[in-house]
Design a protein around this nucleic acid. Structure first.
Lengths: 273, 273
DNA sequence: CAAATCTATCTTATTTTTAGGACAGCTTTT
DNA sequence: AAAAGCTGTCCTAAAAATAAGATAGATTTG
């Protein structure tokens, strides 16, 4: 297994500057301080600053102009292609349709403790574990690990899974999802996931864990989803409902942002012989 | 400015292992693979693995036993203390009450472009920028950067902000939030944030960006929140609404997980003279 | 009790990163 | 046109991180 990243100080300067650019603290078109000035500011050598800037340039966040300076290259990532979907469930189905899926793993295994608990499967029951990578415009953006009780999993084939959304398959089998719980967090990409998503090990990922229950309260699906935050984000609109005194907010929609930079970003990885 | 962190590969192995421990993939009491095995697995030297493990041990996440192995030291963070709140808005207020806040910055500035756009402030209008760190049990878990149009910001004092939730202050001034948009993502901690949250640079964070609009459609607040995923998570329950054919899901509540490990974790930082 | 396994410690060598500077050439300003 | 300031490139040296292996002592297993 290979661990590849930017060196230490470089990485740090890179992150600091990236933050300033992305957050908008440095506006589009603005010139960054000179490499020398930055070097002094962060108490590192010019070499280091230079490496950091090169990373930003490769990401298309800044532009270096010889003899002039380094400029923030914003303004292009203004209009992300978004698909506004009116509810969560349709969203899931839609995702299954409009994006390409690669099925990486498909097997029946003993469930990890957490999964067994969440799905409330019988002690001896096995679960179907599948790993899928979803892409949009040939750029992978999500890494999905799903666990489904065997009795449910047998209702569809390996091939089905590669073509249809999981919940859609379940609907087809007459199973109806009733309730779901989900949790959002952030994790770092491990080598396996990093490879599949074309990012560096240690990149930040959105983690979404969802447990779907059916009518009888038994678990239907345990999903662990990892998303590249630059390619996918969870968005929601909240509207205050009810009258004057009410403090109730209600989400109205979830938005799926597919794109930010126009072209598939080159896979950044150091390859050693 | 001083940049201090763990070395590169060490840092990475540390983060990867930490993730496995915190996420529960490695259960409390379980023995990690031997140092040698880990070294092979991650293709690094034993020295590196060792450094990473030492960091985990210092954090009290694992325990090293001479001659035996390294063990996950969990069991304490079994039951996250959760406060189940029935809606988003009350949630925000509640957060303001039950947790301690440290006001790091409070000033009136020209808004970053993004903010100006989102809030639709006048070209020359300034905004109040505040940075707050919220703690629970003396452990910081969120880093909040809020922008409020000056005319609204003047309605309350610096001191108010250190004691009450922002939206609550607005309500007090007779302003009502009507709609909001929010986006969830993941980012890496930069040195500033890392310092404030007591974590290492490059740790993963949940990023939540929210824009709150009032009645007239003008912006009231632009919030950029960063959360430690091990101390805070966004949870929601979804319930299918409507009859047979309906595919509508509706969130019912948001849950705030305040705690995971019992005691304030020591701030891990290398201090260089 | 012996064998196997594991962590602790130390040593040496190699690789990678960073520092610090010099200089050429391009751009902008004066 | 000259001056000032900037990036691109190259070089040398120091510092830091990592690799790889040997050995000692603790612990567990058979």
């Amino acid at each position: 297994m290979r661990l590849a990243t930017e060196p230490l100080k470089t990485q740090k300067v890179y992150l600091l500057l990236r933050d300033k650019v992305v957050s908008g603290e440095l506006r589009a078109g603005a010139r960054l301080p000179s490499e020398f000035a930055l070097a002094q500011q962060y108490a590192v050598s010019r070499v280091t600053v230079r490496l950091a800037l090169d990373l930003l340039a490769k990401e298309n966040l800044v532009e270096k102009r010889v003899g002039s300076g380094t400029y923030v290259k914003g303004a292009e990532f203004g209009q992300p292609v978004t698909a506004d979907l009116s509810n969560a469930f349709a969203h899931l189905i839609e995702m299954g349709r409009s994006t390409a899926v690669r099925l990486i793993a498909f097997e029946y295994v003993e469930p990890p403790e957490k999964v067994a608990e969440a799905l409330r499967v019988d002690a001896d029951e096995r679960v179907q574990k599948s790993v899928r990578v979803r892409s949009f415009d040939d750029v992978p953006f999500s890494y999905l690990t799903a666990y489904v009780p065997e009795r449910i999993g047998r209702e569809y084939s390996r091939d089905d899974l590669a073509h249809m959304a999981l919940l859609e398959l379940m609907e087809r089998s007459g199973l109806r999802a009733e309730t779901a719980w989900q949790e959002v967090g952030a994790v770092l990409a491990n080598p396996e996931v990093a490879e599949a998503l074309g990012i560096g090990v240690g990149s930040p990922l959105i983690s979404l864990t969802r447990v779907v229950h059916g009518k009888n309260g038994r678990g239907m699906e345990y999903l662990q989803a990892l998303y590249r935050p630059d390619r996918y984000s969870l968005q929601m609109n909240l509207v205050r409902k009810g009258g004057e005194g009410s403090r109730h907010w209600s989400p109205t929609s979830e938005v799926y942002r597919s794109e930010r930079a126009p072209r598939p970003r080159a896979i950044k990885r150091k390859v050693k012989t």
